[in-house]
Write a protein that binds this DNA or RNA. Structure first.
Ligand code: ZN
Ligand code: ZN
Ligand code: ZN
Ligand code: ZN
Lengths: 132, 132
DNA sequence: CTGATTTTGAAAATCATTATCAATTAGCTA
DNA sequence: TAGCTAATTGATAATGATTTTCAAAATCAG
């Protein structure tokens, strides 16, 4: 069976203190910075488990890194600030319905959707360069 | 200035023959399989250029690989088979509207959204293991 | 407490992607 | 067409994230 170790608890806890999405490497650094001796591989494993169990959300950054965040249990999407990482959870029933409808309309099974919005939060707008 | 090489043309051409999104590695294998001597690094560069110029769409697979596809110019989303890569372009005005509305509702500027659906096409359903 | 089983973590192995850099080549120009 | 030069190529090394290994340490039911 699955055992309870201080390492898993440390990861769960550390993830909870983050305001936005973090990478495994980043969380590991953060933990090390707080004096923890946890191993990098263990952080990867713990995050994968948390995501698996639904305690954490994961997504791929535009750069291809896997990012994690402690999120509410229910299915939802994100509004993420590209500058400060501020993340707002979004419920979008209409998008859920649309995704389901679209998938089945084309004969696709077991659909999963990636729906996230990246932008600049009101606090960051003044601090970033104008649009390209 | 930007030069025209048979390599870039080969990549553009090969991308056009793909039915869905492909990775740089995959496209390179495909080209090699067709007798081309093109180098892997060149395929990576050509794909990055095509994506930059808007001739190709790129996205991160759930596994974290960068995938490319020759797509229509206009903004659109995708329905992608996790097994064979079959891709269907989707227009979703309701999603566009939702994204805009949601971003501005929370004070976010310059919103960009990632909206893709991954699943198994009707042809692939029988060939893949059952859902977890 | 004990022992079977799981978990850990340092280090090695993978894997995709990028950087190097000498050799090649496209696109002038005369 | 020959020569020039900066852009491009590609074999290979380097990077960087993630995974695997596997012996040692820890958990927990009995
Ligand atoms: Zn979330
Ligand atoms: Zn912000
Ligand atoms: Zn497309
Ligand atoms: Zn398919």
């Amino acid at each position: 069976m699955k055992r309870n170790t201080w390492q898993r608890e440390a990861v769960r806890s550390a993830l909870g203190t983050q305001m936005g999405f973090v990478s495994a490497q980043g969380l590991h650094s953060s933990l090390k910075g707080s004096g923890s001796q946890i191993g990098l591989a263990t952080v990867y494993r713990a995050l994968a488990d948390l995501a698996q169990e639904g305690e954490a959300d994961s997504l791929q950054s535009p750069e291809g890194e896997a990012l994690y965040r402690a999120c509410s249990m229910a299915h939802h999407h994100h509004l993420i600030c590209r500058s400060c990482g501020l993340t707002i959870e979004i419920e979008a029933d209409e998008v859920e319905a649309w995704a389901q409808k679209t998938a089945s309309l084309h004969g696709f099974s077991r659909p999963e959707h990636v729906v996230d919005i990246f932008g600049f939060c009101s606090a960051c707008v003044p601090t970033v360069p104008a649009a390209s």
